[in-house]
């Protein structure tokens, strides 16, 4: 794949969301640095550009943003928009409403965590039970059967059974 800007090999692949539209860009490293401000050592990852651009596009009401500030670390929504990195864990609560759609976009529409949960010795919060997506397992099972990978199919069948009985 060639860089869209010059003809060097493209090594930086960006997906931007601007005004609700997905735009893909394939650039070489130097063009990415020059055009998108994506540096090598410093600067943030391409995926953060996605976020920044997405947040920019979303922020129609610029006035509203100034109101929310995290009590723990002092970051404002505007500052997050600038840097693409959050200031502390509490930001996920403070900015939950703003973050939720953004996270959803960045993660193929996912809204909730599934998977590993810490046991958290001495913690007061009760972690939710691991939810197993049986639809996904069933799809995998179908695929395994088609690929005649019966060993894996058997494993998946067991997993589905366990999940459905839980």
């Amino acid at each position: 794949m060639k860089c869209e800007n010059c003809n060097n090999p493209a090594t930086v692949h960006l997906t931007e969301i601007k005004a609700g539209k997905k735009i893909e860009k394939h650039l070489c490293e130097s063009c990415a640095a020059a055009l998108e401000g994506i540096g090598n050592a410093k600067g943030h990852t391409p995926i953060n550009e996605l976020l920044t651009n997405f947040v920019m596009a979303q922020s129609g009401g610029a006035l509203k943003e100034q109101t929310s500030t995290c009590e723990t670390c002092g970051i404002t929504w505007a500052e997050f928009r600038q840097s693409g990195v959050l200031g502390c864990a509490n930001d996920y609560r403070t900015f939950e409403k703003e973050l939720a759609p953004l996270i959803q976009r960045a993660h193929e529409g996912a809204t909730h965590h599934v998977g590993k949960v810490p046991t958290r010795r001495g913690s007061t919060t009760l972690a939710p039970k691991r939810r197993v997506d049986t639809d996904k397992l069933k799809k995998d099972l179908q695929r395994a059967i088609e690929a005649e990978d019966y060993e894996r199919a058997a494993k998946l069948r067991d997993q589905i059974r366990t999940a459905e009985n839980a």
């Binding site: 959050l86 609560r93 965590h113 998977g115 810490p118």
Partner: peptide, 24 residues
């Protein structure tokens, strides 16, 4: 995890500085 308490959110999972890494 037996030594350190990791930042975790019931909805978003393991919390990370960049929201693109959140969840697992």
């Amino acid at each position: 995890e037996s030594q350190l308490d990791f930042a975790f959110h019931p909805r978003f999972g393991y919390l990370t500085a960049c929201p693109t890494n959140v969840g697992t």
